[in-house]
Design a protein around this nucleic acid. Structure first.
Lengths: 151, 151
DNA sequence: TATGAAAACATCCAACG
DNA sequence: CGTTGGATGTTTTCATA
């Protein structure tokens, strides 16, 4: 499922502003509005574009505290187990299994330090978790694309 | 800059589908289309909503390889220096200064391992970088919200 | 200060060439 | 893929609470 240059430029335009009109995008990439719509529809059908979402200032949503939690899991813990365990936490915005010492890296948004600590303790108490190591975000420097499935 | 219940429900509706019409959202939250638009306009003006973007399957974009790079920087490196240095890499999708041993955590998408390695070497060669430590993502388990400023 | 109704305007999208 | 035109959505104006 390879994208050509036109598709990439359309996706890029949508990444910058997903509410931009098809006519605007068409002007940008040299296509008519319906042609752009047809490509966007095709990209959605193919699963390249999985949806449209809003970019939000976390602080404004009351999420003042952000951090990463490294998970060291018990033996015989599958990625699916981790996923299932973590999906119940609304504070978890992203999680991945990784190479290296830790088994997974989990990104968490919390309202404040107390909230973050409470989430950390609950995650550390999960049956499949052996120990954790966490770092707090001081300043978010860059936040670019959005990917994957909705909440 | 506190949000009331109505604002939160509007933001939530947009987070699920940013191209949903104002009339649809209005029906959902019990407002007319113009009332929803005015609130969205206000949220944008206040910086709560920073934009609208598309959710993309990274693999479909040709980004098969994902990883985190911990940055250990030279003394007197400011967050702005790191931001400036990293913003030139299109492969960098997120970066934050953090507590703990490392100074910053950088999330990178690359087309394959060779590409990832090339980016890693170039970042490690930046003047402000002393050393790096990186892990590769094995499986992305969860990907939820989008936040922050556009590219 | 915030709302809804309505009108003017823009965009979308299915049909056709 | 582009053009067309009726349907749908957006945005301004206006009156009201």
């Amino acid at each position: 499922m390879r994208l050509n240059d036109l598709d990439e430029r359309i996706v890029h335009a949508l990444a910058e502003d997903a509410r931009r009109s098809y006519a605007d995008i068409g002007e940008l990439v040299g296509l008519s509005a319906p042609a752009v719509k047809r490509r966007v529809d095709r990209l959605r059908a193919e699963g390249v574009i999985t949806g449209f979402t809003v970019r939000v200032d976390p602080a404004a949503m009351g999420w003042e505290t952000e951090g990463f939690i490294e998970l060291f899991c018990r033996h015989n813990t599958s990625p699916a187990d981790i996923r299932r365990g973590l999906s119940r936490y609304p504070e978890v915005v992203s999680a991945s299994t990784v190479t290296g010492d830790a088994d997974a890296i989990v990104q968490v948004f919390a309202s404040d330090m107390r909230h973050f600590e409470r989430v950390l303790e609950r995650i550390a108490g999960e049956a499949f978790v052996e120990r954790t190591k966490s770092v707090l975000v001081l300043s978010p420097l860059l936040r670019r694309f959005s990917s994957g499935a909705p909440a």
